[in-house]
Amino acid sequence: MDGISFDLERGQTLAIVGESGCGKTSTASAILRMLPRNVAKYEGRVEFDGKDLMTLNNEDFRTQVRWRAVSIVFQGAMNALSPMIPVGRQVAEPLMLHLDMDKEEARAKTEEAMESVGLPRYTVDRYAHELSGGMKQRVVIAMALVMRPSLVILDEPTSALDVMTQANIMNLLKQLKEEQGLSYIFITHDLGLSSELADWVGIMYAGQLVEVGPAETVFPKPTHPYTQKLLSSVPRLKSEEKPDSIPGTPPDLTSPPKGCRFHPRCPFVFEKCKSFEPPFFGQTDRSACWLLEAGG
């Protein structure tokens, strides 16, 4: 992942959409400094609530930011619940560790968190195998919310679930956003699903953001050719429009193509694209594409 910049206002949701291997999950992990130590090289700045997070040392970051200010729901996290410990204790763990709560207090808080995600209070005493997939996913969301963070990163939060369960979880996320004024960074490969939450949309390709803009303009009128292709590849349920596939495959990120990384697959490619990397053009809906130079 390379040169990613975006900003997000309180109470807003940014959806990051891209194919697998484009660096979506790495972006999420980088915000929380959770990439493996041997590969990660962090450069640039992460600012949260006006504070520069890059200046914090690891210990401060762990105690002040991770989970307390910014939490994450990992892809497939529901399968990472321990089978040996009641799920309530797993949700309560950060309360006892970070906030030094005693058992009763932590339990009360956990029951509250369970209720806020639509689970009955007694769920705290259940083990993971006693719960269905949708319920486990709710537990994992409760876990991310229990410290009352203001930003929650959702990394494919519904990818292992059935369509109906997925719809219920999306309803829950919408409701929590409204009630608690949460901000989300919602990572997904599903454009249709991203529109359920996104106020802003960021499209990633080969480790870079190629287009960022408000949902109102990106979904109906994307400016980057990749976004256009991606949108026309979505099979629509409510219209006759035939989906169209994108020719070629995403590039190998160990040696990305020179110039614009999308140029080998782009239908509008011209000379400049092959040697120069495009900067962002446009005002609210910004796209990294040479076609848009001089007002496009």
Binding site: T13, V163, M164, Q166, A167, N168, M170, N171, K174, L191, G192, L193, S194, S195, E196, L197, A198, D199, P214, A215, E216, V218, F219, P220, L231, V234, R236, L237, K238, S239
Partner: peptide
């Protein structure tokens, strides 16, 4: 059918009839 969204910026203002 209601549970499967097509990309539409209006989606975020409604509750899915799940």
């Amino acid at each position: 059918m209601a549970a499967i969204p097509d990309p539409d910026p209006e989606n975020r203002f409604r509750k899915i009839a799940a």
